[in-house]
Design a protein around this nucleic acid. Structure first.
Lengths: 206, 206
DNA sequence: TCAAATTGAGCGAGCGTTCAGTCAACTTAA
DNA sequence: TTAAGTTGACTGAACGCTCGCTCAATTTGA
């Protein structure tokens, strides 16, 4: 896929490619979150994007390519937003801030998260590997914050706990995306966030 | 579907139906786990189950019915195992036992859980509603245990917290199924379980 | 004028589903 | 005892249809 796109890039109009790609991704996310990847037809995607199937296939090789593009754009956006977090390493206050930002991203991109995690399996093997790597990167962000808190003496944690708790933090955030159908009836994002922060910090021994 | 099965039940040999249903579910889970619901053909399912497509369609009406059967069997087993828990209502010790049992089920039925949560969207609307109901039932089990602990004075929780924590307990268990690719490298089920119990009880204020 | 971009009818592989037919096991009745 | 009749689980070729993908024809715009 990479190769092909490079080749295309050198032939076709660069900005047009970018424009079309955006249209395709937007259309893809919209439809995948409504009906899932497999129930969405290429014809529908093209229509939603505002052009014909023929044109669609000028910009992707296969339908799976589009799913990959969608996943990739999600990670880019998540990474963007998370890298804007004001870093106060080594303090539980910094940890709280990170959690709030993370929960914020998940709230903003609810649909995208659901699509990504639910359709991940439909990706070809190599693309799947890429997604798992990205997932671990997210765990690593929290892990290094926890390490900071430990070194600063703010939290007493074994290495074993640090790793597990980092996963727990990531998962408890995803909970907001996947269980909104139930949680949304009881809590606002703010309530949910503060309750979880309270719970998690207490659980870690603060 | 319900109607149909009742009718069939009275005509066909009861135990044979049960046997075939088991074969189908096993085959379904195996293949869905490998390739996902949509990539698995009915022919493959029949072959894996050890009979022909024709026979397959003697026991289900549609391919979706099979997905429904898979989900349903999971909930039955979870319910079975959780109802066998020696009830010591109102004690955190009882809560710990419940968590251990729940984690045990998830470990046993890893593949089934992953399939269920990943393919849920492919269910027809009414079946989806049923699955969500069952999901809430699972939350309710933990919720009532927590209520017991509160009434016995073993945990101090607001109603708001009780509901959220019940969800958290359910989700943290699922974590073991969905993140085994990462967690399995670091922990055994026992280690994971005890660490999570410790974390969760501390977070709830014990 | 002509290359780039776009179109959508068309292709055909592959899918879920059906159903006419088979056969082993069982029942009936002479 | 046994031949004829009945049952229903089982089979797999066949059917109708969907949908990813192609490409000859057309439009666009420089």
């Amino acid at each position: 896929m990479e190769k092909k796109h490079e080749v295309l890039t050198s032939i076709k109009d660069e900005s047009l490619i970018e424009k079309r790609r955006h249209q395709m991704i937007r259309a893809g996310v919209t439809l995948f979150k409504q009906k899932g990847f497999h129930r969405t037809t290429t014809r529908e995607i093209a229509k939603e994007a505002g052009f014909s199937i023929g044109t669609l296939y000028e910009y992707i090789r296969t339908k799976e390519d589009l799913l990959y593009l969608v996943c990739d754009s999600i990670y880019h956006e998540v990474h963007n937003k998370l890298s804007q977090i004001p870093l106060q390493n080594g303090t539980t206050h910094g940890l709280k801030t990170a959690i709030r930002h993370y929960y914020g991203v998940i709230d903003d991109m609810q649909d995208e998260f659901v699509v990504m995690y639910q359709e991940t399996k439909s990706l070809p093997k190599s693309a799947l590997q890429y997604v798992l790597t990205k997932e671990l990167e997210m765990v690593d962000i929290f892990q290094s914050i926890l390490v900071g808190c430990k070194q600063a003496g703010e939290l007493e944690l074994t290495d074993t706990q640090i790793n597990l708790y980092a996963h727990t933090l990531v998962v408890q955030g995803q909970m907001w995306a996947f269980r909104r159908w139930a949680l949304g009836k009881e809590y606002t994002l703010e309530q949910f966030t503060e309750l979880q922060i309270q719970f998690v910090l207490k659980g870690m021994g603060q």
